[in-house]
């Protein structure tokens, strides 16, 4: 591996911080767009961008498993959100009317400012210690062991929940008892 030495040295020095800023530059505008875009479906797609950037952050933290799980789950999950948004909204109506009254807007702004202040103060008060633990290469194994030892009970609960969801999905997908198709009806007198 010695021929990669130069590159890796340079990379270790710069790429990580560069990537961090790049991902932030993707994530923050995307997050704002999720909030401010008028078309609900487009904000759904921006949400995918946000989660993609966050999974990139996980990747540079060496947490590959988390990053990939994030992509797999959220990419598909948000597609569902988008589909549901598509089904529940009327694109034409949305363009014509705005349901938000100006008075409501002031209240909203106040709440938002208060929320931002709270979060900001909370973040400031935290000391954020830098962990000295090195991420190990076999972190998938670590996760697996942790899930089946320390966190066995929550893991099982989650499994049962997922199983219930799966069965529910199957039940929903199950077709009705065969309807006798009768196109005659009242057609023939």
């Amino acid at each position: 591996m010695e021929q990669f030495e130069l590159l890796t040295n340079w990379a270790q020095a710069n790429v990580e911080s560069f990537m961090l800023y790049l991902l932030a530059a993707i994530a923050i505008p995307c997050a704002f767009s999720v909030l401010f875009d008028r078309a609900i479906i487009r904000s759904g797609f921006f949400l995918i961008g946000v989660f993609g950037a966050i999974s990139g952050l996980f990747l540079i933290l060496q947490a590959q498993f988390l990053a990939l799980a994030q992509i797999m789950i959220y990419a598909v999950g948000i597609t569902l959100v988008v589909v549901i948004a598509l089904m529940l909204t009327n694109a034409r109506l949305e363009k014509e009317f705005s349901s938000i009254e100006p008075t409501e807007r002031i209240g909203g702004l106040l709440v938002a400012a208060l929320f931002f202040l709270t979060i900001y103060l909370a973040l400031r008060s935290e000391s954020w210690p830098v962990s000295s633990l090195q991420m190990r290469a076999d972190n998938v194994l670590q996760i697996g062991v942790a899930l089946l030892t320390n966190y066995a009970l929550p893991f099982e609960f989650a499994s049962v929940l997922l199983l219930a969801a799966l069965m529910g999905a199957i039940l929903l997908a199950k077709s009705d008892p065969k309807e006798t198709e009768n196109v005659t009806g009242s057609l023939v007198e």
């Binding site: 065969k178 196109v183 005659t184 057609l187 023939v188």
Partner: peptide, 13 residues
């Protein structure tokens, strides 16, 4: 199968 069932009576009408 069982798609587009056309009854005798309808067809004749």
């Amino acid at each position: 199968k069982d798609v587009g069932i056309l009854n005798k009576e309808v067809a004749m009408a």
